[in-house]
Amino acid sequence: MRIIIPIKQVPETSNVKMDPETGTMVREGVESIINPLDLYSIETGIRLKEKYGGEIIVVSMGPKKAEEALKEAIAMGCDDGVLLTDRFFAGSDTFATSYTISKAIEKLKPFDLILCGERATDGDTAQVGPGIASLLGLPLSTFTSKVEVEDGHIIANRLIEGGYEVLNLPMPALVTVVKEIADPRLPTLTGKLKAKKLEIKQWTAKDIEANPESLGLKGSPTRVVKTFSPKVTREGKVIEVKDENSLNQALDEILELLKEKAVI
């Protein structure tokens, strides 16, 4: 099996700090990591490779620094990496990103499967995976919690509202996965050494024969016109339970609120 896994390098946002004045994220000292949800697509790919053989190519669009993310994926068990890096790519929205990555994947043909993380934790759109599938004319399974391969087909469980849907997709296909699919492994020393030696290919807009009109900010139909800080603080009441009295007070307050909101 030849598997392609598009990944993204994102700022580590679990401890994100916001500048209260400007409402923007404090980028200084913020580490860049593999999009945490891409670890699941990487792990899924490696497990399929272990079972069926083949190779995995990870692809990322971003600055030179994004090479770190590709190397980490290779250290985990992927075989090769391609970095799409060009100033023409800057400012891409989900359309331009889907377009750019799909052009690169065309160049990597043939392949059997594309695996994507559910979404990236910074943009949080979940649109690039389906976008790539659509541009390449591939059948798609999103929110996938299990994949199996059966004579040239993918059997995928999709986690949707109310349960799991089982789909049968012909290959090549694109599958976006959720966290439930597999626990990602840690990179080993052997993997790290292998990744260190490997030269990551760098492709520009020209290399992937992309239409410049569809790239970067210029090729993006959407524009951010304003950003602002959400108001999250609520003037909530806080009751400290110290004894029987305050416990009863707390319970009464909860019950009152439940009645007010017509939950009981």
């Binding site: 679990s14 580490e31 990591i33 593999i34 980490e72 840690l186 990179p187 080993t188 790290k192």
Partner: peptide, 14 residues
């Protein structure tokens, strides 16, 4: 086995 953690995600995990 030797596992390597060199970023926030993996360091936190180990």
């Amino acid at each position: 086995e030797v596992y390597v953690a060199d970023n926030a995600t993996t360091i936190e995990r180990v």
